[in-house]
Design a protein around this nucleic acid. Sequence first.
DNA 1: CTTGACCTTGTCGCAGCGTCAACGTCTTCA
DNA 2: TGAAGACGTTGACGCTGCGACAAGGTCAAG
Lengths: 252, 252
Amino acid sequence: MRIGELAGVVGVTTRAVRHYHHLGLLPEPERRANGYREYGLRHAVVLARIRRLTELGLGLAEVRDVLADEAGKDLVEVLTELDEDLARQEEALRERRARLRVLLEVEGGVPAEGPVSPGLAALFAGTAHLSDSPMAVKDREIIAFLETAVPEGERERLVSSVGEALGSPEAVARAGEAYALLDALAGAEPDDPRVEDAAVTLAGCIPPTLFPGTAGELDPDDGFLHAFYDDLAPAQAEAVRRALRILAEERR
Amino acid sequence: MRIGELAGVVGVTTRAVRHYHHLGLLPEPERRANGYREYGLRHAVVLARIRRLTELGLGLAEVRDVLADEAGKDLVEVLTELDEDLARQEEALRERRARLRVLLEVEGGVPAEGPVSPGLAALFAGTAHLSDSPMAVKDREIIAFLETAVPEGERERLVSSVGEALGSPEAVARAGEAYALLDALAGAEPDDPRVEDAAVTLAGCIPPTLFPGTAGELDPDDGFLHAFYDDLAPAQAEAVRRALRILAEERR
DNA sequence: CTTGACCTTGTCGCAGCGTCAACGTCTTCA
DNA sequence: TGAAGACGTTGACGCTGCGACAAGGTCAAG
């Protein structure tokens, strides 16, 4: 048999056969005078075993180990391990599929912020009519970001806090007001008189559960906080700072 | 923010961030005087979106497409496609796990021929006591090979045919006799008088269903058949040839 | 002044082959 | 007899999503 015949009869490609030679899985056969490989039954038998093993999901390195150990005993070990591995993969797949399905089933489709948890997606759907406000859009982006950024265990709390701020029509109305006031500060100076009003309104929108510690004590060296303020216009940043200070006062 | 902070807050590695820059997923930020990248909130937001998308199982190329299309509409398409893809993967995983479990549960463990179908494994377990016979071992190898080699639809028929040959204690006894006769021919000449006996006994072991066509008309140019005969001692090969001829005669 | 924790660019490595490239060999058909 | 077409040969790059080096530069603290 030449390589194409061998490959054909076992159902793999010639490239794969040569690859197995290269890795030492399949012994190199004799060569004909013209350099062609001349295969025998032995090779077909081994190649078929390789194929069966790889179809089960073994890596080629594991296949080599199995083929090397004449004993069939080691194979059981490898397969048991493999089964555990596959179980993990299956679990991971199932989780992803579950998240996907939830995403696709949420009414309103997938929000523009990209895929977020179903809880957030529902809340965002409630503020869809505010998409004319740059601040509202930015806020949704930041919330979506926070959900990714906070440690796993905090997510539930975060979502429920956001639910307090955006969960009811009244809350959304209040938030819309705050967004509008902040939008209006886009080109203003930090000492603009409207800053105070915006800060108070904003403070009224932020649920106390959002910051479990004292909001006034947020680490002033935190690079992310800097980036956050830098991203806002100066007067807007000032309003946010003052709002947080108001919250810290209230908490005492 | 510097790169380490950004990566830390979003929960990826700095290496990944640079990789995303390289692929154009994440815009390169301004540089400080010392060459360090200086990130803002925008980058954190985008990076978090990238992470959410990759966690769902999207490839980076798809992530790029999604980020490029501002519309959230395309995302739904991509996700739907992805879901179908994941469904296929899950199916494949389930199948493999099922095969694995069957293999591990078959009594006698996994046969030395490597993983075969449960049907064959059971049959092989019945001939385990013949492992002293080189011919019996070889036969099992070849049968295992054939199961891999024949097209999908033929497997069932193959296994049931083998079941006729090795499925009952009486059948196994007859097969053992044929193996012994063939083993005895290992060093003999093709005109050895024992060849005839071996051929007749062997012919009695091969169920007529094994070759659905006429066995005598097997393609004589078939490279695999050559390899098969070449693998046997000359007298053994002669016995097999005669056995097949006997079967072809009977069939008329 | 040194240490240690950051940052920079660049390259190789991983799994399992697919896919050229550039060439030799063998058969077959006009 | 010559050319086409279907085989074979070795070798090298490509793909995915980064991890893990190398070989440095930068900066704050002890």
